[in-house]
Design a protein around this nucleic acid. Structure first.
Lengths: 320, 320
DNA sequence: TTGTAAGCGTTATCAG
DNA sequence: CTGATAACGCTTACAA
């Protein structure tokens, strides 16, 4: 409630001097007045207005993370990585959840730009034919012109540095592994239609010699649904690879409910190695989510980012 | 990049008039000048400074949600509820993750206060003997004085309206249900030491006639660990109730790994009914997480909140 | 209907 | 070392 001018009056010192001691500027201030100011601030319960400060310095200490769905452990892990690097340095990490390629995503982006965020991290993938993509690209450019550092953690359709792992290779590697186990007929349950990430993962599956694939999604329910359709076929494939862990777990659940033995009758694998994968012992591909978040935050703090490609690794468990 | 004064100059209209048309004020403006301004804004790519606006109106359109751990599905569900109600109304939901009762929590609170957040939602429980509790209470008071709406979604040690469910009753009900199944010897795996929520849930277990309880926590790993200790005993109890779902799933996983049949040899139940509980078919108590978040956001929008107690319900699945 | 001007709480540039 | 004072970009009485 108390402002600098209150402190100034209370301590009988100019407002400029108060500002200098209260924000630790390099400008010299005598020890005597310093303590006077500090005491006044203490007595009046001074709390600086981050708003006013940001207005004049032209940059707030806010890092925005735009995710597709906050309950998705994939994004949660990224957000946690950002938070870990930003916390303690006075930066506020704000996670904004918006369906990929939606109006809401554009809205969040605008808000972040309007608040002069120090950084904006796009955790999710872009999608083909996204009608708001041009607007997003414009807003991203405007934000960058304002000095905001923008980082993409998956393929997007605008100009910004990307800190990613190789989705195509990840899908390829898990497919190759599963085939190496001797499974000939392996089918892929695709990610959400249109998402670049989905396309990349499908491409990796194909490159590893995979043929059969069916529509799916990234949610648990999508896996359930896909498994139900599979169960209606004459015969099940020998192995199933889902575009991500959540869907893989959906597959697993539905299959076991139907009395199918996993991995006895059919092997199941996912991609991402999120927390729930541990719970159910899912074979998957471990990708550097936390590290991507951490690096993105670091880029914001450093005020500069560059393209980075991070490694992934197979995580073999009990479903294959 | 363009500001109101740029538009003003470009359109040959006063800055006040520009402000009036660009933010849809009630003040009348002729159709002619309105279009002039709109066009200038369009050409220059005007984006308002939310910072400046917030500074003068003394309130930003930011809703901060302080959670214990963003990867915890309990909090994710709450955050999503807040987001759902706030989105579209121009409010930015920012999720800040900080260990309950930590310095970081205080730091986030300060930041939110300094940004004149419209609302601050505490998703997690307070903890006994928290050294920063007095500071938190002060910052909460200051924030409220500034007009920020503060809401607690669990028991806290400061003065603010609470939107909660009955933790004690939830624990009581699941315990009673399990005992009603004929299990005499049921042990409770406690939540994190010190958390009010932990104490409430343990109290509910006790009131329902439960005797045996062992230390645990709210994380998956805590469940794993607790199960390991249980496995070292001469005999397993007939049923296990964990303080939350994550821990219950840890229990379940470790037990089944050890060849124990659940629910054949021992029944397992949790509390919260978070997403992973569906994955593994866990019997648990469904609590109104999403609704709590939604109502908290609504309270912020309404600029007023009051205490609310929401209902819970048993969710019987396959682990009992 | 339009414009003028006084802030909002800081920071930063100059002079003392 | 200390103090005026001009921004920062916007909202809002109060005038015209």
């Amino acid at each position: 409630m108390a402002s600098l001018s209150d402190i100034s009056r209370h301590a009988g010192v100019s407002i400029a001097t108060c500002s200098r001691v209260l924000n630790g500027s390099a400008h010299p201030v005598s020890e005597a007045t310093r303590t006077r100011v500090l005491q006044a601030a203490e007595e009046l319960g001074y709390a600086p207005s981050a708003l006013a400060r940001a207005l004049v310095t032209r940059s707030s200490r806010i890092i925005g993370v735009i995710v597709g769905d906050i309950v998705d452990p994939y994004f949660a892990e990224i957000a946690r990585g950002v938070e870990a690097a930003a916390a303690g340095l006075g930066y506020l990490t704000m996670v904004c959840s918006a369906e990929l390629g939606s109006e809401a995503e554009l809205g969040h982006l605008h808000q972040l730009r309007d608040y002069h965020a120090a950084g904006i991290v796009f955790a999710g993938s872009g999608r083909a034919g996204d009608p708001s993509a041009p607007d997003v690209a414009v807003a991203v450019r405007e934000a960058r012109e304002r000095g905001t550092v923008v980082v993409a953690l998956a393929q997007r359709d605008f100009d910004a540095p990307a800190i990613v792992f190789d989705n195509e290779a990840a899908a390829h590697d898990i497919t190759a592994y599963v085939k190496g186990l001797g499974h000939e007929r392996v089918t892929f349950v695709e990610g959400p239609a249109g998402l670049h990430t989905s396309a990349q993962r499908l491409a990796g599956f194909t490159r590893a010699g995979g043929i059969d694939s069916i529509p799916g999604g990234f949610a648990y329910e999508d896996g359930i649904e896909a498994a139900s359709r599979l169960l209606e076929r004459d015969a099940l494939p020998q192995a199933l690879i889902a575009a991500n862990d959540e869907a893989a777990i959906g597959l697993l659940t539905r299959l076991r409910d139907a009395g199918v033995d996993v991995p006895g009758d059919v092997a199941v694998a996912g991609i991402d190695d999120t927390r729930p994968a541990h719970f159910v012992g899912l074979t998957t591909v471990s990708v550097p989510l936390h590290e991507m978040g951490r690096r993105a935050a670091q880029a914001v703090l450093d005020q500069q980012a560059e393209d980075v490609l991070l490694p992934h690794a197979l995580a073999i468990r009990t479903t294959t």
